[in-house]
Write a protein that binds this DNA or RNA. Structure first.
Lengths: 205, 205
DNA sequence: CTTTCGTTTGGACGAATGTCAAGATTTTCT
DNA sequence: AGAAAATCTTGACATTCGTCCAAACGAAAG
């Protein structure tokens, strides 16, 4: 039993899980600001209306909290992208829509994506995060692959690379655009738009 | 004057810079093990024959030390890749050689590359690192671009994307392969080999 | 040998961290 | 309302961190 309150009588609505989600969301906001390394439990608590001691009532230790945050971030990601491929009638339309979508996602929440790359880097050192991070990577890969397959079908062709390679290339474009965007480069968003759009025809027969 | 000893009489050989290099190299080894976040000055000192106090004799503070480390890492990178494009007579040869080279680099020093991605992620939060990290990224981009141009020339064609996009895609493949390699995936190295090799024809006319 | 200056040590400091527990407060149930 | 359980606060703890400093060391110059 990792948490002291895990054995409580179940109320009608699971208030316990709600509070965990609330605290995890505050932790995500704090980490998006400062990064994983510089975010302490007290800093996280300052983003809530509660005191720092409460965090250990809902989470056994810091690793469990961060792990829960990563899972929650994943839930938001898959929910966002499960809407599926945009309804496009031509390959060019789909490629443009996808490039626009990626650029919009970057522009809309650059700090959240910055946190994602931070956590993914941390997962290379902290084995506890590795599983959840890999799952998020897989779901993103599936999202990319659905778009690549849809593009290929519209173009009357087939993919010429593995799902993993396709995701790696799109992710590389996105990460590089994020780096430049955060550094203040003006053309970063447009470069991502065009780079992603032009990547589709490179990946089909 | 950032360092107390910067005003010392210059000896014949600059022993001061040598010691800085020695300490920075030890810091790189320590960070490759633990990652930037978990590496303290005392941990770094344990990787040397000196005590922890010495670090503040050669470096004003931790940021100056890490910055010096990043610059030193960069020096090693450009030295490694300045050897230039491999002498290949056919496009396929060059692509295969480049894929093999990337896979070999990953297999040879995965922890050092892990540190690189860690530091690059940190540079998104710590502005002090941003400049040096961007310079390393630029030099890596140039290295990739030389190979892409050489491939295009051998194939009697021209590149169909920007240097930045080409680097982003190769870097994405490399980073994804590193993640899987560290997670214990067996096919990661081979996938990188093939993924990089097959990327070349996608980037030329 | 003595002095001098660059080098190195080891300990100390204040601040910050993760963790924990005892008590206060609020909610829920009878 | 009163009792019991769940929730929350507060303060403390042992570490660890970056930083600083007085003293000791060592080699070269006088």
């Amino acid at each position: 039993m990792t948490s002291a309150a895990a054995a409580k009588r179940r109320p009608r609505v699971d208030k316990f899980e709600d509070r965990r989600r609330e605290l995890a969301d505050a932790a995500l906001v704090a980490m998006a600001d400062l990064g994983y390394a510089r975010t302490s439990l007290r800093t996280i608590a300052e983003h809530t209306k509660f005191s720092h001691g409460l965090l250990h009532y809902y989470f056994a230790d810091k690793v469990e909290l961060i792990t829960y945050c990563v899972q929650r971030y994943k839930a938001a990601c898959v929910k966002r992208y499960e809407s599926g491929v945009s309804e496009a009638s031509t390959p060019a339309e789909l490629a443009t829509a996808c490039g626009d979508g990626l650029a919009a996602a970057l522009e809309e929440a650059p700090l959240m994506h910055r946190l994602w790359y931070d956590l993914r880097a941390q997962s290379m050192f902290e084995e506890a995060f590795r599983g959840d991070v890999a799952e998020i990577d897989d779901s993103l890969q599936e999202m990319i692959w659905r778009n690549v397959c849809a593009y290929a079908e519209l173009a009357g062709a087939g993919p010429t690379c593995s799902p993993s390679d396709a995701y790696a290339m799109f992710d590389g474009l996105f990460q590089q655009a994020l780096l430049r965007h955060l550094a203040g480069a003006q053309g970063a968003l447009d470069d991502l738009r065009c780079g992603a759009r032009d990547l589709f025809p490179r990946l089909v027969s």
